[in-house]
Design a protein around this nucleic acid. Sequence first.
DNA 1: GATGCGTGGCT
DNA 2: TAGCCAAGCAT
Length: 300
Amino acid sequence: MAAVTVDPATRHATVVERVLDWYAVHARDLPWRRPEATPWQVVVSEFMLQQTPVERVREPWRVWVERWPSPAALAAAPSGEAVRAWGRLGYPRRALRLHRAAVAITKEHDGQVPADRETLLRLPGIGAYTAAAIASFAFGRREVVLDTNVRRVLARVDGGVAFPAASQTVAEVAAATAFVPDEPERAARWAVAVMELGALVCVARSPRCDACPVQDLCAWRAAGHPAWDGPPRKGQSYDGTDRQCRGALLAVLRSSDEPVALGELAAAWPDEAQRTRCLASLVADGLVVAPTAEHVALPG
DNA sequence: GATGCGTGGCT
DNA sequence: TAGCCAAGCAT
């Protein structure tokens, strides 16, 4: 097999070349990827895409960036409006963090989204992945953009296993870095392209290996697609959890333009002990305020 | 490092 | 059907 006898650098370059060619043909047309997309629009997309599928983000993103076209515009709005506009995207603390990031960008960065990964990392709601993604997608920087899609693709193509480890290791980052082209513009295209491959072809459940541009270079395929033999991935339960309760309570507040009487919340979640606990946690998070002893609302 | 945090589509 | 999974972050 020629593929296994070539040197690693050539192999990496071949994988990159193939994935870039595939992306040029198969990339989805996502508005935040268009050339005219602003850094702020990229920031909004990245917050919304944290743990939320692309197709559910499209419409809320469109409405959001039209309403708040700059960090300053969002910073000037009440945080509760950000939470309301978040709608049913899930994990509403992200809306609050995005609002806080907008305030920080407005106050500390002259209203301009920072281009530097280290600076981005200091903003609320921006971790290692999002900082690298914004620097790469919005500013064309050379970054190691390692999200769940890329981790899975590299686990298979490079590592020969079905899934990446639960937690990211130094070795994994080093392995990913070896694929990143030197030239920033090409590196940025690689980042978005390999992520797209993971989202459309090298998916978690039923990968479409026959449509994969690097199927002949894939270590997992060469090994016969061995099943995942690592520790079972922890499934997230939901029914009856505080997360479901918080979601139900917040849904009531989003739908009301006025403070809601505590009694009204009982209809949304009958279990009083859990309701009280979750309401307190929502207040602690800053997602809810209590204007009177008997009423709650989204923050003004 | 493990856990908590929403929501909905897919198999 | 009942999990599994989705461009993670903060604590």
